[in-house]
Design a protein around this nucleic acid. Structure first.
Length: 300
DNA sequence: TTAATTTGACCGTT
DNA sequence: AACGGTCAAATTAA
């Protein structure tokens, strides 16, 4: 289109960023060799380690941002004003669920999208209920609904699909609120074996056609309930992608969770939450402070 | 045995 | 008629 120059410059920028990240990774390896960084309380140059992570994070976020602006339009989650009229419009309204497939096509209430470089447990329990190949897309779309749909009538669903232009990224579109409640301590679970790189970033993008989402509307920001076994999630995620991902080998370990930055772009009317995970273990606890920081963000 | 996933069928929308 | 979202029987995993 009109940004050929931009595209050309972008390539150079990406090259430089990739090189910078690679160099930072090398430096990190040197740091790791020189001391035990297995646990976070490692005595060796914690500040240097911290700085290094910041640097890596910057590279990764920049790369992801460039990727993001190039390939994805986060704009077409269209919202219809009709509030969730799920049960209202079956043709045979009196016979609820008598006939298979008697449902109303989703008239979106509230949606938001997330793109992530790795597979993140978003704090809720999901059950897969479908998978479809979508026209002109390489990767299938997976459909999930809340595990507690039956017991608690939770209507939250999500759709997950690999991004064609960058298969290391997943696009997740969330529909509806979680009305279920299971109280457990907040926790983010990441499997590094699914992550294409040691350091990952993710972007949250809220469609702004509706009022600013409440905390609980966003699975990442909400007080989450996590399954007790992270391995189940991981195994399911692995299954989900078994035909499409070549898993990188495990590497060195560090288990910090970073919420690096949060950009609030008023002109775009999008709230973009940028965070970086550096985890090589299955379970990572987010410090409360970080959570509070996110929750107290001035969204409007 | 129970719970979760897979997958083709079903059906509403376009 | 094609497409995509959901259902549910069959299959697999825990």
């Amino acid at each position: 289109m009109e940004n050929e120059n931009l595209g050309h410059g972008r390539g150079k920028v990406i090259d430089e960023l990739l090189r910078g990240r690679e160099l930072a990774n090398q430096l990190r390896n040197i740091l790791n060799e020189s001391g035990d960084v297995d646990d976070n309380n490692g005595s060796t140059t914690p500040f240097a380690e911290h700085l290094l992570k910041e640097v890596l994070m910057t590279f990764t976020n920049s790369l992801l941002f460039l990727n993001n602006t190039q390939t994805s339009e986060v704009s077409d989650v269209q919202l219809t004003k009709s509030e969730d009229s799920l049960e209202s419009n079956c043709k045979s309204t009196s016979i609820v669920k008598e006939r298979r497939g008697c449902y109303k096509r989703r008239k979106v209430s509230q949606t938001w999208e997330k793109e992530s470089e790795y597979l993140v447990e978003d704090g809720h329990q999901w059950r897969k209920y479908g998978q479809k190949t979508i026209l002109n897309t390489k990767f299938p779309r997976n459909y999930y609904r809340c595990t507690h749909k039956i017991e608690q009538g939770c209507k939250a669903t999500k759709q997950v699909q690999k991004i064609q232009e960058d298969p290391s990224l997943f696009k997740t579109v969330y529909y509806g609120h979680h009305t279920c409640r299971i109280l457990q301590s907040p926790e983010i679970i990441v499997d590094s074996s699914l992550s294409p790189s040691h350091h990952s970033s993710m972007f949250l993008s809220f469609d702004n056609s509706f009022p600013t989402p409440a905390k609980q509307d966003c699975p990442f920001l909400s007080s989450p309930s996590y399954p007790s076994t992270s391995s189940s999630i991981i195994s399911s995620l692995k299954k989900e992608c078994k035909e499409e991902i070549v898993y990188p080998p495990h590497s060195s370990s560090a288990n910090d969770y970073y919420l690096s930055g949060l950009t609030f772009d008023d002109s775009e009317k999008d709230v973009t939450l940028s965070s970086t995970l550096d985890s090589h273990q299955l379970g990572v606890n987010i410090p409360d402070i970080l959570y509070d920081d996110v929750l107290n963000w001035p969204l409007s």
